[in-house]
Amino acid sequence: MRPDNSLLAFSLLACTALLVVWLGLLGPTNATTWKDWQPLLAAIIALGGATVVYKSAMAKVNLDRAIHEHASRRRIRGLLLRVSFALHVIGHDTRAFADALRDSVELDVDPKDVRIREVQAMDEAWSNLDEFPRQVALTLGRLKVEIFNFEHWRSTLGSSSFVTSKPLPPNVIQLRDACERASVICDKLRDDLEDLIDAAGSSAHHSSLGR
Results as ranks from 00 to 15, higher is better:
Val184Glu: 08
Leu193Glu: 02
Trp126Leu: 04
Thr164His: 05
Phe85Pro: 00
Ile185His: 01
Ala50Pro: 04
Val119Ile: 14
Asn30Glu: 15
Asp64Gly: 08
Asn62Arg: 14
Phe97Gly: 01
Leu140Arg: 03
Ser159Leu: 12
Leu140Asn: 02
Thr139Gly: 09
Arg154Thr: 14
Trp34Gln: 15
Gly201Val: 01
Ser84Asn: 09
Met1Cys: 10
Ala43Thr: 14
Met1Trp: 08
Lys35Asp: 15
Ser155Phe: 09
Pro111Lys: 02
Lys55Thr: 13
Ala43Leu: 14
Ile116Val: 10
Glu106Cys: 07
Leu47Lys: 05
Glu194Thr: 09
Ile197Val: 09
Leu87Cys: 09
Lys55Asn: 13
Phe148Val: 03
Leu12Asp: 07
Ser11Lys: 11
Val89Ile: 07
His92Lys: 10
Gly24Asp: 03
Val61Thr: 12
Ile173Ser: 08
Asp123Met: 01
Arg95Leu: 11
Arg65Ala: 14
Ser127Leu: 15
Gly48Ala: 07
Thr94His: 02
Glu194Ile: 05
Arg115Val: 05
Glu106Ala: 07
Phe85Met: 05
Ser127Pro: 01
Lys144Arg: 10
His92Glu: 10
Asp4Trp: 13
Pro28Ala: 14
Gly78Glu: 12
Val172Ser: 02
Gly24Ile: 00
Asp130His: 14
Asp93Ser: 06
Phe162Arg: 00
Phe162Thr: 01
Ser127Val: 01
Leu209Ile: 08
Cys179Lys: 02
Arg190Ala: 11
His152Pro: 00
Thr29Tyr: 11
Ile147His: 00
Cys15Lys: 04
Ala199Ser: 10
Cys179Tyr: 03
Leu81Thr: 12
Asp192Phe: 05
Asn62Val: 11
Ser11Ile: 15
His92Asp: 11
Val109Trp: 01
Ser160Asn: 05
Leu168Gln: 04
Tyr54Lys: 12
Asn62Ser: 13
Ser202Glu: 09
Arg134Asn: 12
Ser104Met: 06
Leu12Cys: 06
Ile197Tyr: 04
Ala9Leu: 10
His206Asn: 04
Ala199His: 09
Gly49Val: 14
Ser84Ile: 05
Leu157His: 01
Val163Pro: 04
Ser6Trp: 03
Ser6Cys: 10
Leu189Ile: 10
Arg102Gly: 04
Phe85Cys: 03
Ser104Gln: 09
Asp108Tyr: 07
Gln135Glu: 14
Leu193Ile: 06
Ser165Tyr: 07
Ala125Gln: 00
Ile44Ser: 07
Ala14Ile: 09
Asp198Phe: 11
Pro39Thr: 12
Phe162Ala: 01
Gln38Phe: 12
Asn149Glu: 13
Ile90Met: 04
Tyr54Trp: 15
Ala66Glu: 08
Leu129Asp: 05
Gly158Asn: 04
Ser84Pro: 02
Ala100Asn: 05
Gly78Met: 06
Trp22Lys: 07
